[in-house]
Nucleic acid binder design. Structure first.
Lengths: 111, 111
DNA sequence: GGTATATAGTTTGTAAGACAAAGTAGTTTG
DNA sequence: CAAACTACTTTGTCTTACAAACTATATACC
């Protein structure tokens, strides 16, 4: 059987949501960025509890996908890295949220 | 920096949700199982579009975690594998859904 | 001045695991 | 009786998330 065989049915609960966002660490980072205009490294680190290495590498992947912009400046002679969602990133996040909600919505009809 | 440094702040958007459920394939399988009492292999295959191999291996992992039960019988001389959520699995799914909703909820306050 | 400590990150090594492809076991069809 | 189909399970590979190690600069201590 191949996955494309599923075209046959009309209303399958699909699993085609954005893996880049779905990954927990990035999901937390993106949901934090979504509610603000921008956030810096130290803030996100304190806020999420993610290690420095993970923030760095996950943000690099999000930047590669053009979901976030990374800006490096200096504040008080110290490096300061500021992250922000791009329009693409915002749109992708909204779409992702819709996918998740659609999947979880009808499972919360009962309870 | 270690992750435990984050204990300091009061209200961080945490990322401690159940990876076993979070994985897309398993999330789809579990959300399908959640709304019914039980479902068989063929039904889930058609419904989700997942390949046989993936259903098999993911269900094995869910069984190992005692989130689902796997029952093998014969129907019309053919093997028939039936899956169902356990109480533990149901509870874990509810908790997972709450975690996700909590994370995504305040990001949908604006829009 | 030099060396220890802190801050703000990036790079790297490894171990886990998701996926498709290949394999197994039995059944039906030509 | 062999080819094809059904209903799965096992295996091999490739990705990737994570922590640990590293880099670079700044400040504090002696």
């Amino acid at each position: 059987m191949t996955p494309s065989d599923s075209e046959a049915d009309g209303e399958s609960r699909e699993l085609d949501f954005d893996r880049l966002i779905h990954e927990p660490a990035r999901l937390v980072l993106m949901s934090n960025l979504y509610v603000v205009d921008e956030a810096d490294f130290v803030f996100l680190s304190r806020r999420t509890g993610l290690t420095a290495g993970n923030i760095s590498s996950h943000m690099a992947r999000l930047e590669a996908a053009e979901y976030v912009t990374i800006e490096k400046t200096f504040a008080d002679k110290r490096p300061r890295t500021t992250y922000a969602l791009t329009k693409t990133g915002r749109a992708a996040f909204v779409t992702y949220r819709e996918h998740v909600n659609a999947l979880l919505a009808d499972s919360s009809a009962d309870q």
